[in-house]
Each structure stands twice: as structure tokens, then as C-alpha cells.
Simulated scan of single mutants.
Amino acid sequence: MRTAEVHYGDNGHVDLAVPKGTKLEELTKLQSMVIKQINPRGCQACLSGVHFNIREKLEEVIKVDLDKMAVIKDIAATHR
């Protein structure tokens, strides 16, 4: 299953992380779906200021436990 990560911040920016090889056609459909989730009744004028940052997902190399400031070992070992 291919998945995209969608993050919406207080600053009105939407960050989309999509798998490598995602086509522009898929991005436009995703953008439309995301806008409907953010503001289902919004008019074009209301949504014209929404900024989309689109990037390809990076492979997870390591995860860090922020409380301990340590690498989570089981994740790092699976990507070697």
C-alpha cells in the first residue's frame, strides 16, 4: 500500500510527503481531497492562501527517543 503523509500547521501551510514516483495527476487529486478536509465549505477566495509544500518521502533511517535523546535501536537495525 502506498501512503502519503499530510500535515496541516497553524500557519496555513500543508506539507505533503508522497512516495517516490507519485504522478502529478495523483497530487492534484490529493490536493483537492486535502482542501475538502481542511475547509469543506470554503470558497476559492477562502482557500487561495493555502500553501502546499510537496516532497517525496525519505526512507526512515533512524528514529530518536526525544526524552532520552537516544536512537531507538530496533528501527535502526532494520535499515542497515
Rank of each mutant, 00 (worst) to 15 (best):
R2K: 15
T3Q: 13
A4P: 02
A4M: 08
A4T: 05
A4G: 03
E5D: 15
E5L: 13
V6M: 08
H7T: 15
Y8I: 15
Y8C: 11
Y8T: 10
N11C: 07
N11P: 05
G12W: 10
H13I: 14
H13A: 14
H13D: 15
H13Q: 12
V14P: 01
V14C: 07
D15P: 08
L16Q: 03
A17H: 13
A17N: 11
V18Y: 03
V18C: 09
V18I: 12
K20A: 10
G21C: 08
T22G: 07
T22F: 11
T22E: 06
T22D: 08
T22W: 00
K23N: 06
K23I: 13
K23G: 03
K23R: 07
L24C: 14
L24E: 09
L24N: 06
E25M: 02
E26F: 02
E26V: 06
T28M: 08
K29R: 02
K29W: 00
L30W: 01
L30I: 04
S32R: 01
M33G: 05
M33P: 02
M33Y: 07
V34G: 00
V34P: 00
V34S: 00
K36S: 12
Q37D: 14
N39P: 03
N39L: 09
N39A: 13
N39K: 07
R41G: 10
G42H: 05
G42C: 06
C43T: 13
C43G: 14
Q44T: 13
Q44W: 12
Q44S: 11
A45L: 15
C46M: 13
C46E: 09
L47N: 07
L47Q: 04
L47H: 06
S48A: 05
G49S: 01
G49I: 00
G49F: 03
V50L: 00
H51V: 00
H51I: 01
H51G: 01
I54L: 01
R55D: 05
E56Q: 04
E56T: 11
E56L: 07
K57A: 02
L58T: 09
E59V: 07
E60S: 13
E60I: 02
K63A: 08
K63C: 15
V64T: 08
V64H: 05
V64P: 00
D65P: 00
D65E: 06
L66N: 12
D67V: 01
D67H: 14
D67Q: 11
D67E: 11
M69L: 08
A70I: 06
A70H: 14
V71N: 01
V71G: 05
I72C: 05
I72N: 08
K73P: 14
I75G: 14
I75F: 15
A76W: 04
A76T: 06
A76P: 04
A76M: 10
A77D: 13
A77Y: 12
T78N: 10
H79T: 10
H79M: 15
R80W: 14
R80M: 12
